[in-house]
């Protein structure tokens, strides 16, 4: 690894980034409930994106020199990494498309949603990303047990998010009249959260797979591409929510 860090500083970095993200999220929330400035919300979201992409998803690893032997594990991991990022790029177009739909149909208005619930699930997802990062860092230092524990926490939090959206937020919204068929706002809300939830769901399966494989000792400090991939994917799902949360809950005037 070119960005070699010792274990404690890597773990420390995870904490610091988490604190940044948490503060920014709270900031975002208060901006929205007080004076609702779109430009600030956009700037905050972009900063959060950059933090996650660099420190949690390690986008710089794409640039890493790899072994010249094309059959080596590290060379293949390099190819895998590129493949995964291209996949995420492609996937990002779906979410960008959904965002476009939202902007086109709702403009600077937003549906009536339960703010506390929104903030709550956002916090859960953010925390899960923190534990995911922690787990991956531990694995890179050969701590299998540590990885498994953190990955399980991530999984539980992720499940919490999923249920929070699908089993709590959806019925709540529906009981207040926002149903898929009620109009453009309902359609946009269920589609955006639904597509995101679907990705969370696949991420959870991915997590189960790597946890199970870790238990079977498939991974080592040097060879754990599967875990890296699961982590990067998980953070990507978080990334999408970093945009979708303000787009659905915070930006614009409340629809009557």
């Amino acid at each position: 690894m070119s960005h070699t860090q010792d274990k404690s500083s890597a773990l420390g970095q995870g904490v610091v980034i988490f604190v940044y993200l948490a503060v920014l999220t709270i900031l975002e929330y208060f901006v929205a409930v007080t004076f609702s400035a779109v430009s600030i919300l956009v700037v905050v979201a972009v900063i959060k994106l950059a933090l996650v992409m660099y420190y949690y998803m390690h986008i710089y690893k794409l640039n890493e020199e790899s072994d010249s032997d094309t059959h080596s594990y590290s060379y293949k991991t390099g190819s895998n990494r590129l493949g995964l990022w291209l996949f995420l790029l492609s996937d990002a177009f779906v979410f960008a498309g959904l965002l476009t739909v939202r902007i086109n149909l709702l403009g600077l208005t937003r549906p009536h949603l339960n703010q506390l619930l929104g903030l709550g699930v956002t916090a859960i997802l953010l925390i899960s990303s923190f534990f995911m990062n922690r787990g991956e860092t531990l694995m890179a230092n050969g701590d299998k047990k540590g990885f498994i524990n953190n990955a399980i926490i991530t999984f539980v939090l992720g499940l919490g998010f999923l249920l929070g959206v699908v089993a709590v937020e959806w019925p709540t919204a529906a009981s207040e009249g926002l149903t898929p068929g009620s109009g453009a706002a309902g359609a946009v809300f269920y589609m955006m959260t639904g597509m995101h939830a679907f990705h969370v769901f696949t991420g959870l399966i991915f997590l189960l797979v790597v946890i199970n494989n870790a238990r079977k000792d498939v991974y080592s400090a040097e060879k754990h591409w599967g875990i890296e991939a699961a982590a990067v994917y998980w953070h990507f799902v978080d990334l999408v929510w970093i945009i979708f949360y303000p787009a659905l809950y915070l930006i614009g005037k409340l629809l009557a």
Partner: peptide, 21 residues
């Protein structure tokens, strides 16, 4: 399937948006 009104003008949707996508 679910009556989601993305492109249904009666529900505030926009048929031209589809064409852009």
């Amino acid at each position: 399937l679910f009556g989601m009104g993305f492109f249904d003008p009666a529900k505030g949707g926009n048929p031209v948006l589809f064409q852009h996508l």
